[in-house]
Design a protein around this nucleic acid. Structure first.
Lengths: 340, 340
DNA sequence: CCGGTCGCCTAAACCGGTTTGAACGGCCGT
DNA sequence: ACGGCCGTTCAAACCGGTTTAGGCGACCGG
């Protein structure tokens, strides 16, 4: 069943050299005659030999893998297209070198233990920190644990850790400005979980833009980045004496649910209500009407994060990496403000 | 930055014993006096020592990790709530023992190379095979590679590999039967990618149930498990001279898009069209109208799959594992067939 | 009193790589 | 002819665990 892989000794024997030479040839280091090197590589190819990662890891003191811990509830992660694309990006950066990614899904109460184990296990060389929260214990934790890390988010979140950021605010600013242009004056926000820094950031972008425009800061309701939260918040907003004429949601999931609630209540979109989401999920183009949203390149984010962590591990002083910001994607879910 | 972890030698020194004893104490094997054992464990705790996984892996010849390769396009995976929940389940089974999961996201053309590397690397002890296709090369490949594996899907897909299955057909059978009860006679299907075995299986469940009921086997269109495909198929179906009065989709994403198209075309749901999805995504309860769907416990599936792979690795003759089937979840998107 | 058994513990080998230090032979210049 | 240097190669040590084989003293039965 489990076929025995050849070892470096087998290759050495076949090529008629020492294990040292095989190692040198493989990692092409100087001091091996070209002819010998070819013979060794041929032998390795013939046996189908590739070095054992655990052995290599032990010897080098490097695991050759990064860790990613997802602390959301599984059903919330499921609806979020961010992680698969992000992971694909990480993979793209790591795969070239044959390195890998260990993914852990956990709950908030066990989060710390997971990082501690990751550090003690020495199975990963570093971790990528996503979804930073206010007073997030993780920057301090990884520092205490001596676990190299990169923060996926704004630099000020990381307590001195290198960060890889992709600004989501410009998309919100553009969205709110566009709504203002269209004549909206009562623009509400359905925010994500307060604990998340990016959710707070999105809210602030909305709020500040309204201030800049001299518009009233409309009502804010929690949506929790979930369909249920988005639906509930929308119901509440539309039940107000003076309901908003536009709602900016923290993500597409909440916005899509909001869209349905509006329809259910007989509020036509965009005639009486404009709706904007965030994430540009595959569904947005196919809701009714198509949902305005914001697009960020999660794959590029993952790739950049992995590269940054590489740099940190190489001991370089890695500057904070800033990626092109998220882009507002207007669609038919927004329109001119209704006449009073 | 990277703090040096203590090694077994440090613990041995502090406890005043040999490394052997430390190892024995930790893996609580007989032959260590209780008092000594406690002293060793205390020393280990004091130093915060946990064995290095790479060292352990090398020594034991076991990596202590499983591999999961996702071969879908990232944007397709993103919309699928299956994987996060599945991974959470795997994690639940593995976490107890401190084992981990290596996740790789790849494209079909590189898939084989990824498995080959996984096998050659010896960084995982086995793999979980999901999304099996017709003539899937992977069962043969892992066998050839000597890579232990478990198939997540029906047993007949695995070419003799142990499988962990969760039958999705009962949900389709129940859905179609319910539609028939409601008077529908023209029931269409928007299927997933033909290459996927589970997509084919769903289609067959729909088809066979119609036959059993003596109903005409309605039109089938490809939906590709995507929003775009679902929208296009729906548009086409509703444009037929005799459009179906009900559509059963391969998944929720396609169904949700279909729902929107129907509305856009002025076809009221469920009055003139009943719609059913699959997956029970968080959004289904909050579409307009709420989408009938089918629920499968992906988390339990992941947990069972990990346990089964454990068994295979332990050399047990693991029987095929059969989980409770998916359940039809009726919601307001279905209703009585319209009168002619 | 002696050989055997048992409980407890350890030295040394091993897993499969990488790396250090030194050996070896050929070639050079003097 | 000799010393030094270079290019090539390898033996041995090392990474941090686990495991085997055996040592040692206490206890036991005959």
């Amino acid at each position: 069943m489990v076929r025995k892989q050849p070892t470096i000794a087998d290759v050495a024997r076949l090529a008629g050299v020492s294990r040292t030479s095989v190692s040198f040839a493989l990692n092409n280091r100087p001091g091996i005659a070209e002819e010998t090197k070819q013979r060794i590589l041929a032998a390795a190819a013939e046996l189908g030999w590739k070095p054992s990662r655990p052995a290599r890891a032990l010897s080098l003191g490097k695991a050759g893998a990064f860790g990613l811990v997802l602390t959301r509830e599984p059903e919330d992660i499921g609806a979020d297209p961010f992680f698969p694309a992000f992971i694909a990006g990480v993979e793209a950066a790591l795969g070239e070198r044959g390195d890998g990614l260990m993914v852990h899904v956990t709950t908030p109460d066990r989060e710390q233990a997971v990082y501690e184990r990751l550090a003690a296990d020495r199975r990963v060389d570093g971790v990528l920190l996503t979804d930073l929260r206010h007073d997030d214990p993780r920057p301090g934790l990884v520092r205490r644990l001596g676990l190299p890390a990169v923060v996926v988010g704004q630099s000020e979140w990381g307590d001195g850790l290198t960060s890889v950021s992709l600004d989501d605010r410009p998309a919100y600013v553009a969205a709110v400005r566009r709504l203002a242009e269209l004549g909206h004056r009562r623009i509400a926000h359905v925010e994500g979980p307060r604990t998340f820094r990016h959710a707070h950031r999105r809210r602030m972008a909305w709020e500040e833009t309204l201030r800049d425009l001299g518009l009233p800061v409309g009502p804010v309701l929690p949506g929790g980045f979930t369909a249920e939260g988005g639906a509930r918040a929308t119901r509440e907003l539309l039940g107000l004496a003076e309901p908003p004429t536009a709602i900016v949601y923290g993500n597409d999931l909440a916005a899509t649910a909001g869209l349905s609630v509006a329809q259910e209540l007989g509020v036509p979109v965009p005639e009486r209500l404009s709706v904007i989401g965030y994430d540009d999920t595959p569904l947005t183009r196919y809701t009714h009407p198509p949902l305005s949203s914001a697009r960020a390149d999660a794959r590029a984010w993952g790739q950049a994060a992995a590269r940054a962590l590489d740099g940190v591990l190489a001991g370089e002083e890695v500057a904070h990496v800033v990626l092109p910001p998220a882009e507002f994607v207007p669609r038919a879910s927004i329109g001119p403000a209704p006449r009073p």
